[in-house]
Design a protein around this nucleic acid. Structure first.
Length: 390
DNA sequence: GATGGCCTAATTAGGACTTCCGGTGT
DNA sequence: CACACCGGAAGTCCTAATTAGGCCAT
């Protein structure tokens, strides 16, 4: 097997990626890019950067010799005539080597991203990326058995729309995407988990896969009834609409999480953080999967996540006595959320005061207030918590 | 004029879906 | 009844490989 290693060190690339990711996370999105836009525009694969080009045709001779067969040999084998005799008298095309097929996850050949600089992302790669993205995992897609590579499309329609966005196919739906998934059965990339709807299994996974399990502060959104059960949250996603256009409510939520997928998470996950964080980020060493915890900088709950903290969580946090009684060691996620909410609340209050002073009344109209609505509007009585409040 | 190298546009083949459909199972 | 699921068939899109032609230097 030919091995191609175009990005051998990976160091520079990792640094670049981290810098780029950092700027993306820290910059405002002036055009209000939604998560779908990010997946369609800025989504570049990083999945281990390890892929393979399978051998095209393999024969097993009587001697047990296994090897790839090019087309001229193929002709020899099947016509018993030299391939040269098959060439036309005039100039004719040389036998074309088959294009490399979609790499499978067990891949060993390393290329520049997936496709020699191209940014073609296969569906299975897309799904793996989603499974490594806290914005959509476990919200839209989640692992049900990471060890076995089994995952569930929690919100099949949303995942299909993301895929459609990426492929610039606005009409994409789960039925269509599902057909593509079913083709993966034949190719040995996916298996169906029998008896479980919307549950599939990767036949193999990259070694540096990052696993996000339940409980990272975002709620799963089941296809069936999420939109009806979110009466407390006006911005709840209604992803089960059958039309392919994105409803305004859809967009509002997807814009909430409008930063690109976090790349190189495995590099982030190398630093240890308190064990009691609910979410587990782990790379899988060969044969086993150790739990690797996030660094403080890659903390579970960050400001950008606050808008999607569920209304239920907010209600809990608004019970100030309880929140203040929390200890970091025992309730790290809630504790951190309370801290972040508090500091964000302070920042927003300060920003509004500055705006009031500096700008005309026209300047802070609905836009400026809308941006604070999710945290400010819904948590009016939340008292900011600072570190000293612990 | 012949030859070779380089570049570019056009052509071609094939992979990976996408679309549509009829059907089954839950 | 809605939905997930299945797989066949035909089509589209994209990309890599190949060809053909032009230009230039030797």
């Amino acid at each position: 097997m030919l091995k191609v290693e175009l990005c051998e060190s990976g160091e520079e690339e990792t640094m670049e990626t981290l810098v780029a990711a950092d700027s993306l996370l820290n910059m405002d999105c002036p055009d209000g890019l939604s998560i779908e836009q990010h997946y369609s525009q800025t989504f570049l694969p990083s999945l281990g950067d390890v892929i393979t080009a399978p051998v095209t045709q393999v024969t097993v001779s009587a001697d047990g010799i296994v090897g790839p067969v090019d087309q001229s040999q193929w002709h020899l084998l099947h016509t018993k005539k030299p391939a040269s005799q098959l060439q036309s008298k005039k100039r004719s095309r040389k036998p074309r080597l088959r294009r490399a097929e979609s790499p499978t996850p067990e891949i060993k050949v390393k290329k520049d991203k997936y496709n020699k600089g191209g940014n073609t992302l296969y569906l299975w790669q897309f799904l793996m990326e989603l499974l490594q993205d806290r914005q959509v995992c476990p919200r839209y897609i989640k692992w049900t058995n990471p060890d076995a590579g089994i995952f569930k499309l929690v919100n099949s329609k949303a995942v299909a729309r993301l895929w459609g966005k990426h492929k610039n196919k606005p009409d994409m739906n789960y039925e269509t995407m599902g057909r593509a998934l079913r083709y993966y059965y034949q190719r040995g990339i996916l298996n169906k988990v029998e008896g479980q709807r919307l549950v599939y299994q990767f036949t193999s996974l990259p070694k540096d896969m990052v696993y996000i399990t339940d409980g990272d502060g975002t709620k799963e959104e089941e296809d069936e009834d999420d939109h009806t059960n979110n009466s407390g949250n006006e911005d709840a996603v209604s992803d089960d609409s059958d039309d392919c256009t994105i409803s305004s409510s859809d967009q509002s939520v997807e814009e909430e999480i409008s930063h690109p997928p976090q790349k190189k998470m495995s590099s982030i996950s190398a630093v240890q953080t308190p064990v009691n964080q609910r979410t587990r980020l782990a790379t899988r060493p060969p044969g086993q999967r150790d739990t690797v915890l996030r660094s403080a900088s890659a903390s579970l709950i960050q400001e950008k996540h606050l808008p999607i903290v569920s209304a239920e969580m907010l209600r809990t946090l608004q019970n100030l006595e309880k929140v203040q009684s929390l200890q970091p060691a025992g309730h790290a996620s809630v504790f951190k959320t309370a801290q972040l909410l508090g500091s964000l609340y302070e920042q927003q209050a300060a920003a509004v005061m500055i705006q009031d002073r500096e700008s005309s009344p026209k300047a802070h109209d609905k836009d400026s207030h809308q941006g604070h609505k999710s945290s400010q509007g819904e948590t009016p009585q939340l008292v900011p918590l600072t570190t000293s409040d612990q």
